[in-house]
Write a protein that binds this DNA or RNA. Structure first.
Lengths: 329, 329
DNA sequence: TTGTACGCGTTATCAA
DNA sequence: TTGATAACGCGTACAA
């Protein structure tokens, strides 16, 4: 040991790996590291992994399917013990995922769950989250509520749309196809569809955005069209787009516990890697989102409906507390 | 080859590494991955690395020196070919860096350059950046300009303070110790010192923040004390804190080309790894920052000085173009 | 061109 | 307990 110090010796982890057939390494495939939501998720996963002596390798795919394929291949070559995966929008093609699985590398999907393939997954309860949020808008008196969806080939986008429809239906409002705009989770789309909505003759009194990135685009549209919020329109979004700043308007949002999602996913993956959980069936962990009511949903339509359960708008000050999501069951 | 496909075969990169004594892997040590500036930097480095067939492993240190030591040790064990390093605030202790270097692993420092050890580095020209920005405030008519510095044990924090002082001196303004507040690049400090400044009897007419994170804290202080910007005070910051949104006020900032910094650092590191650059002396790459003039510096003090080079405030609309930094030489 | 043996640094096995 | 030795999967050098 003394000699080791003297010689500035460091054991070779790669030689060790070759021998023991483990790398104590987890791969994390992310679509966009500059998205604060994912960045936070990485921290959760990394903290959990490091605590259990695993190294976490994070790689971006930039939402590109071919890059995802390439990355998965690299990770296989590197013999990572398991993979945390945020899938890029794929046209139902999961062959690369399947072949990685076949190579004996466990995969846990995060946030987005691809349809058509059985995978472990960790995400937020999308249905409940958007249902609670849209319900909040309805309680404010809105009835013409638009939604800009994500890519509907992803389960989470579907779930958020579903929650929107559920909330409307339970309030006796029939979903209007004119108010359901199909987006894709990208900034430019939030801008384009948002502008389209805002320039309509009969524009909705409230808009629900399916993720934080599209909300950034929507804000641009809002500003360009000269509409004010909460003066002219209300809106709310899935994802809490920014760290709470003093910027105006503060945005009502369905906040996802990003750090916890990452940590839970890493935890589950390590269980799989170590064979501590029976592989029989797939595990789906759903965490609770939290509705943060802020200024952007403070606008109340001029002709509110006289409904018995109507709730007057709460205070909209900057330091107003957040409200825990109410369960629908 | 056909058989390889058939058997779902993937060559073992670790066995290969053991043989060729290379891992084709670069380590990237970051203090905070949730900071958008670093996130962007990672993308630049990753893109560059991947393009040259290197894998990039990114790890957080949370600004903790002991974690930095541990991470460097892990990276050594993993036999990474080189390391990109954003140092945590260290009390002048660079022993772990030196021993990594001694083990034959090249290191390129990014953003922050530790004093007291000769290292390759890539960063922005801190002096010029803050000098240009403070000069801009002076041109707006400000003379009582405060600065909240970073940890002065870091070269970049020193440089930014130096640029501030240079700008004042060239305008014939004597730096006032009362207006130089020693910070540490952290949000809470921006809040605390900002509040202190804003509540002073004789408060400055403008404030220069040494980084984006502290600016977030400053905004909180601004809001809590009820001061308005650009109504009551002007401010500007090093770092462009957020992706350009429509939030108000838009912040005048010294934007650093984060992506390019990351890419340049990776490029230089790979040169070192491949021995394509003579190791004789240390290389320091300095990129040009860009001053983005926006709303937050629009406030003009009531008693502007009648100086010949005084420039009236420009338009402060949201879509105003940015202005390239003017060189001081 | 095709084949064979050895080395890379570590762990694991088996014998002493 | 200690010490020698065979794997681990791939390059590489040398022989056929």
């Amino acid at each position: 040991m003394d000699a080791a110090k003297d010689l500035n010796y460091n054991p070779s982890h790669i030689a060790r790996s070759l021998s023991v057939k483990r790398t104590d390494t987890l791969g994390m495939v992310i679509t966009d590291i500059t998205n604060p939501f994912f960045a936070q998720m990485i921290r959760g996963a990394e903290d959990c992994a490091l605590k259990q002596e695993y190294l976490l390798i994070t790689i971006n795919t930039n939402e590109q399917l071919d890059r995802e394929r390439q990355v998965l291949s690299v990770l296989r070559s590197r013999r990572v013990d398991g993979i945390l995966l945020v899938v890029a929008p794929n046209g139902g093609d999961a062959s690369h995922i399947r072949s990685t699985l076949d190579a004996g590398i466990p995969i846990v999907c995060i946030d987005r769950v691809p349809s058509g393939i059985a995978l472990d997954s960790v995400s937020v309860d999308n249905v409940k989250g958007s249902q609670t949020c849209v319900r909040h808008l309805i309680e404010r008196g809105h009835r013409r509520i638009a939604i800009i969806t994500g890519s509907l080939s992803l389960e989470n986008a579907k779930g958020r749309l579903q929650g929107y429809e559920l909330a409307l239906r339970e309030a006796g409002i029939k979903p209007d196809p004119e108010l359901i705009l199909k987006g894709d989770f990208r900034e430019a789309t939030g801008y384009r569809l948002g502008k389209e909505l805002l320039l309509r003759q009969e524009r909705p009194t409230a808009v629900f955005l399916s993720n934080g990135v599209m909300t950034m685009g929507f804000l641009r549209a809002l500003y360009e069209t000269g509409r004010s919020c909460p003066g002219d329109i209300a809106f709310a979004t899935f994802d809490d787009p920014q760290p709470p700043t003093i910027f105006r308007p503060q945005i009502t949002a369905v906040a996802q516990p990003a750090y916890e999602i990452g940590a839970a996913a890493a935890e589950l993956l390590i269980q799989r890697v170590q064979g501590k959980v029976k592989l029989a069936k797939r595990i789906a962990i759903r965490l609770e989102p939290e509705l943060k009511i802020r200024e952007s949903s403070a606008f109340v339509p001029r002709e509110p409906l006289a409904q018995s359960h109507l709730i007057p708008p709460r205070g909209t000050g900057p330091h107003q507390g957040s409200e825990r999501v109410r369960h629908s069951d």
